[in-house]
Every structure is written in structure tokens, then in C-alpha cells.
């Protein structure tokens, strides 16, 4: 079965804040995680697929957004499952992948 691919730039070219309530034009990490990433993540896990998150094509990321998306997912599903299921593509900012993996590793499970 093919991998599932999510392009962040399809969600927004300007991802912004951590939470929805932090701005009306903030394209929050919480919104991306709840509405886009998590449903695909569940499908990928159920079908034993890989989920590729393409981080290119935006004008840049704040760390709170990244932590909320990937750290938040790890808090809900456990960091090992997240690291096993998700792959990343970031040609424009290669340092992001390493940072995200650390956010996932350090996320505390609720």
C-alpha cells in the first residue's frame, strides 16, 4: 500500500501559533493536528502505512506550532508510535526534522 502524504502548505503557507485561541489568522498547530494530521495518522496506523509529512512550501515555522503538532501527537499516541509511523521531508529547512524528532521524544504522554 502507498504511503500517505500530507503537505503542510496545503493546510496553510503561513502556519503560525500553537493553539486556536491565539489568533484568528494564526493557522494553529492544534488545528492542523486535530483536523489533518491525526485522521491521517489513524489511517496510517490501522493500515500499517507510513505517513510522510512534507514541510516544504511554507514561509516558515514557529517552534510552538511544530511542538504542538508533533509533540501533541506523541502525547496522545506515544512517541514510539509516532516516530515509527511518520516520516518527514524538509529540503528547504533541513534542521527542522531533527528538531521535530526531539519534540516527539521529549513529549510527555498524558
Amino acid at each position: 500500500m502507498d504511503n500517505i502524504i500530507i503537505k503542510v502548505c496545503d493546510f496553510s503557507k503561513t502556519p503560525g501559533s500553537r493553539y486556536r485561541d491565539e489568533g484568528k489568522k494564526a493557522h494553529s498547530g492544534q488545528e492542523f493536528r486535530e483536523e489533518i494530521l491525526e485522521p491521517s495518522f489513524k489511517i496510517a496506523m490501522a493500515n500499517n502505512q507510513k505517513l510522510l509529512v512534507d514541510l516544504d512550501g511554507t514561509i516558515g515555522y514557529g517552534t510552538s506550532w511544530l511542538e504542538e503538532v508533533f509533540g501533541g501527537l506523541a502525547r496522545a499516541y506515544g512517541n514510539e508510535k509516532v516516530l515509527k509511523t511518520i516520516d518527514f521531508k524538509s529540503e528547504e529547512e533541513d534542521y527542522l526534522i531533527d528538531d521535530i524528532k526531539q519534540y516527539i521524544k521529549h513529549a510527555e504522554i498524558q
Binding site: 501559533s17 514561509i59 516558515g60 515555522y61 517552534t63 510552538s64
Partner: peptide, 19 residues
């Protein structure tokens, strides 16, 4: 041109003030 560092700077500062 895209300046990713500029957006990172703006977002960190806005988030800091907001939080």
C-alpha cells in the same frame, strides 16, 4: 523571496507576547 528566518523570528516574538 522567501526568508524563513524572518517568519520564525516574527512568530516566536508574537507567541511570546501573547503567552
Amino acid at each position: 523571496r522567501t526568508c524563513k528566518g524572518l517568519q520564525r523570528t516574527l512568530l516566536e516574538l508574537m507567541q511570546n507576547t501573547n503567552n
